[in-house]
Amino acid sequence: MIEVKNVKKSYGRKAVLRDISFTAKKGEITCLIGVNGVGKTTILNAIMGLTPIDGGEILIDGKKLTKETYEKVAYIPDSITMLPSMRIKDAFAFMNDFYTSWNEKRANELLTFFKLNLEDKINSLSKGNKMKVNLLLGLALDADFILMDEPFSGIDVFSREQITKVFTSHLIEDRGVIITTHDIQEIEHLIDQAVILDNGIILKSFYPEKIREEEGKSIIDVLREVIDR
């Protein structure tokens, strides 16, 4: 379980996160939906200890982040985290060198799944394929949680389809996922929990399936309601 409690963060005078609290459970896909503005990426960065927070607390399975956390929580930012000059196999070797939770078997399986090649040089790949390498490097860790930042943003439709398939595959299995998006329609039926974020605060967090059952509303309906308010 990842618990984000009353997190605050400003850049200079600009408050990016004003009071953010939500919980992402293992075995569920939690989606941070931000219609406009920043904040989603900052939350993920903060969970990973990549940017300091000004207030509040973030707990992962009840504990604060330590270096061991990086074996258990995989982060997939929106740009690739390896050197452009590397080939995929170099990136594999790098991951294998440092992470005990690196699962080479799954990495190779993902390589086939995404139709990539070990010899491919990272900076020669298309944007969609780069995102796939990025996903691959995160998913191949035997991590309990996976955080993905806008995995669908700015890539071609076929890559999107492939990436969508990841969510329903055994590659996610019982792990907890936090994904950010500004376009919920893409994954409307894939997620368990929706967290709507705007101007640094959480407008609403809910289970869409429950809202559909109890109020007969779609995620977009809820979005429209809370944003208009």
Partner: peptide
């Protein structure tokens, strides 16, 4: 459950339910 989730692009937990 996973096959169905995959063909329909829906959450496996939903199919499970």
């Amino acid at each position: 459950r996973r096959e169905l989730a995959r063909t329909l692009n829906i959450n496996p937990n939903t199919v499970q339910r």
